[in-house]
Amino acid sequence: MKQYKFSMEKVLNLRQSQEDDAKKDYLEKKLLQLHEEEKLEKMVKASQDLKETTHSFGTVNELRQQYLYKNYLDEQIKFQESEVALAERNTHFELSVFVEKQKKRKMMERLKEKKYESFKEEERKEEQKELDEMGILRFKSKTI
């Protein structure tokens, strides 16, 4: 009995490697997105904390500094929101690339499975043919 060898094994290995690379890229982008979201949350919390402390009146200079800091935080929050949106788009793109690579690999694996089933069927037919020939030869030798 011969051993099965998939003729497109190298292609399957290449697709597996491409899928692994795409998964790695996706996970990196997802981590970056989470980092950007965390930075945004910290800025929003700082802005909320500043609103709570603004109620305690101090000197005019302190109020002015708080006002300037509040404006600065608002600008940074808007900028960070755009960074989060960009990171989300990049993550979504990498996810779509990963899913596409995964589909291609699975398609090759299904092809490999079909070819293996076909190989097993051919082997079974060949074995059955040999058994039939042996039976015929045995029958002929008994009748002689």
Rank of each mutant, 00 (worst) to 15 (best):
K2A: 11
K2V: 12
Y4T: 08
K5T: 04
F6E: 00
S7C: 11
M8F: 14
K10Q: 15
V11C: 08
N13Y: 11
L14Y: 10
R15W: 03
S17P: 03
E19I: 00
E19H: 06
D21I: 12
A22T: 02
D25G: 02
E28T: 14
K30H: 09
L34I: 03
H35V: 05
H35E: 13
E38R: 06
K42Q: 14
K42T: 08
K42N: 15
S47D: 13
D49G: 05
T53C: 14
S56G: 07
S56W: 12
G58A: 02
V60K: 06
V60F: 05
V60D: 09
E62L: 14
L63E: 10
R64N: 13
R64P: 07
Y69T: 06
N71Y: 02
Y72R: 03
E75N: 13
E75L: 04
I77L: 04
I77C: 02
Q80I: 01
E81W: 05
S82E: 13
E83Q: 12
E83W: 01
V84M: 03
L86I: 03
R89K: 14
N90A: 09
H92A: 10
E94T: 08
V99M: 02
V99S: 01
K101W: 01
K103H: 06
K106Q: 09
L111V: 09
K112S: 10
E113T: 08
E113V: 14
K114I: 13
E117M: 08
F119S: 02
E121A: 04
E122Q: 05
E122N: 06
E123N: 04
R124D: 09
K125N: 10
E126T: 12
K129C: 12
L131A: 06
L131K: 09
E133D: 12
E133P: 05
L137E: 13
L137G: 02
I144Q: 09
